[in-house]
Write a protein that binds this DNA or RNA. Structure first.
Lengths: 397, 397
DNA sequence: GGAGGTATGTTCAATCTTTTTACTTACCCT
DNA sequence: AGGGTAAGTAAAAAGATTGAACATACCTCC
């Protein structure tokens, strides 16, 4: 995604009008049921301006009027809601385990989702399979008559921040792939905005963007699967993902936790991934690629060797969380990825370490909100869909 | 500083005008010698709008007209420059070693600076001493007739992101100090904007904000002194500092590099600061508080014990840099703080490790720009002054 | 050396968006 | 039922940018 939002830019009257309409739309999206008067107060605009903007957004089908609210002494306000019937967002993810496609509404409600298990394959073959899955989702009756706003695709590797290019996905065996271009040849008719993002960054964005109450000012998503990735998103009402110059931001799997430790596939020693990751657990416990790692370990969890390995991996995960806490200080942390299904044996040591040490510096007793997603199959795909919406609202509205 | 820039806000016509004037001012600041026509092209505004804005900024004394530029076929453009004669920015820093105050112009040129060595003392006593130093700087003839835009103060500890409150400065022995309020009682007559920031974040901001050529899209400042801190600033033409929910972002001294390692003063084990920091080197090599650490070690650098300690500290610093690279992926890294004066014995191992491993993930050979500031005495103070300017331009222009 | 060409910068009426002001609508309380 | 209060709308007024014409200034070419 290429939101150039906080570039220090100038603007004309048309820009101002779009800015105000975006602000209205964002407010109603974030706080369903707001009235025109509420918006005017919060946005520091006059009733007339808001009235005009709302009228346009109603006519264009972005908003719908809802129920009449309780009066607070005078004429009661009319609730405004997103029009959840008119549009559809598509999100997709290529992961090590398979392909995911999700179709959802503006408010993030899932209309239809599909998931197929598939071993990593060449980019072109994968694009073909993904295109087929997307076609199946589009043809679902729930999507009937809806206008497609676009497609977001999430991949497990660093993406160039300025163009849709995947630099490297070691777990897929891909390198320098222009995946959207490939996909476009398979789906020439699919309209709307297309964008590509890293899996953890997309997930982080979606977890924050679709929230409607108690919106944290920043959110860190940690994705613990075959590899370890993360995404940080922050910036108030207009969330911005930190990408870094080469899209490398958040590649925490290769931060060093144990100088002089085991060799990592990246060539360095002691990377976090050598301690906690799907591939490290497979290597340590001798689980073959043909087996499902999590199922196998859940089955073998009585073995002392397995318990110890998970405990050590958990402690490393806790250390990683603490390091991120001290580097980024997010308002909320969400933990996802296939390894969360391992449950207590992995997570308890992680959370214990994080809980015990997160307040060392400030001496407060407040715990950082930390949520664990048990099944994050569609989290990244959903986040990619969220990015489509954010892009659309920002650009047009 | 409280720049609410990328809050998703609405705006009226007056807001638009201010936005455009800010954009003009920022452009000329960043690219001295631009003409009105250049600005119009870059900002996507018409010549008329730019002409009007420039006229206002000239009248208000922010800009001055310069030389007539070479013609490119037609009428030559008139160069525009910041008016560096009219205003003054004040920056100050309270560090473990003493107090620093700097007065500089809009373009960051130093008008006068003062530095006194002083052991950490109570907040009130320190505020009194700093106030006196500020008075001396203000009275310097170089500042004659200049309008003061404000004062920025940098402190070595996490600052609340929403209000000028220092949470904790272990190396000063301070806790929950409203330092600006204290200072205000000593300097009731000093006008302009006042703001408080963490030392490393202020330094990072200043290093990016006062740059006029080859402006990196993001910059990481690592401050290696008694403690280890960092600041990351990014966001194109309008730099934004990552602060975190509790102002804890960048407190990398307490990221864990050696699980189960030495105890840190924070209570945890294996923090980066136990491996590389002024206090860790003092403890490891038995240097007393009354001695200057760097001078002592430079004197003793022949001792094998010292060489080994510096080498190990350097390797830890390199690891820290690599972890930050994989977490934030900054376009440029600047290394400052009192320990940089230790030179090669510390820095060579650090740079070697960072250089050898920074390209593990992408497989490129490009080296990340990394600059070392030999004498960073005034870097943080200067950065705090830069924050004053940014705040002023953003708010008023 | 003068005419033509080209790009910069200014002026002023036209256009567009927000605000201001007045008004209508709709509910609550007495 | 009537006064009070707040939401929402309509039309005129205010304010900012644009568009087009114009003045300015240098370069090139004849």
């Amino acid at each position: 995604m290429t939101i150039t939002s906080h570039q220090h830019q100038a603007g004309d009257l048309h820009f101002l009008k779009r800015l105000n309409r975006s602000a209205i739309l964002e407010m109603v999206r974030r706080t369903p049921g707001m009235t025109r008067a509420d918006i005017a107060t919060r946005a520091q605009l006059t009733k007339a301006t808001v009235g005009g903007g709302v009228q346009t957004l109603l006519k264009q089908g972005w908003l719908v009027e809802g129920e009449l609210l309780k009066s607070s002494g005078g004429r009661p306000g009319r609730a405004l809601h997103l029009n959840d019937q008119r549009h559809v967002l598509l999100g997709a993810e290529v992961s090590v385990h398979g392909l995911q496609v999700i179709a959802c509404t503006l408010s993030g409600k899932t209309l239809h989702q599909r998931h197929i298990r598939m071993a990593p394959d060449a980019p072109d073959t994968t694009a073909e399979a993904l295109a087929e899955l997307i076609r199946e989702v589009i043809d679902h009756p729930e999507l009937n008559e809806r206008q497609l706003l676009g497609l977001g695709v999430a991949l497990p590797g660093p993406i160039a921040p300025d163009r849709p290019l995947l630099h490297l996905a070691p777990n897929l065996g891909w390198r320098d792939v222009r995946f959207l271009d490939l996909l476009r040849t398979k789906l020439p008719a699919l309209g709307g905005r297309w964008l590509l993002d890293n899996e953890a960054k997309a997930a982080a964005f979606g977890e924050l963007y679709f929230r409607t109450d108690k919106i944290p000012e920043s959110l860190l998503y940690v994705s613990a699967g075959t590899g370890i990735g993360s995404g940080i998103v922050g910036g108030g009402h207009w969330p911005l993902v930190t990408r870094g110059t080469h899209g490398l931001a958040g590649e925490i799997g290769h931060t060093v936790l144990q100088p002089g430790g085991l060799y990592c596939h990246c060539g360095n020693r002691g990377c976090a991934e050598t301690l906690v990751s799907g591939w490290a657990l497979r290597a340590a416990l001798g689980v073959g690629e043909e087996e499902d790692l999590v199922d196998t370990l859940l089955h073998r969890q009585r073995e002392p060797e397995v318990g110890l390995a998970l405990k050590r991996a958990g402690e490393a995960l806790g250390t990683l969380l603490l390091n991120l806490h001290h580097t980024l200080d997010p308002a909320e942390i969400v933990l996802g990825g296939s390894l969360t299904r391992l449950g207590t044996p992995l997570l308890k040591p992680a959370l214990e370490y994080f809980t015990a040490n997160q307040n060392r510096l400030l001496g407060t007793t407040q715990q950082r909100p930390l949520r664990i997603i048990d099944d994050s199959t569609f989290t990244a795909a959903r986040g990619a869909a969220a990015e489509v919406l954010a892009n659309t609202i920002h650009a047009a509205a």
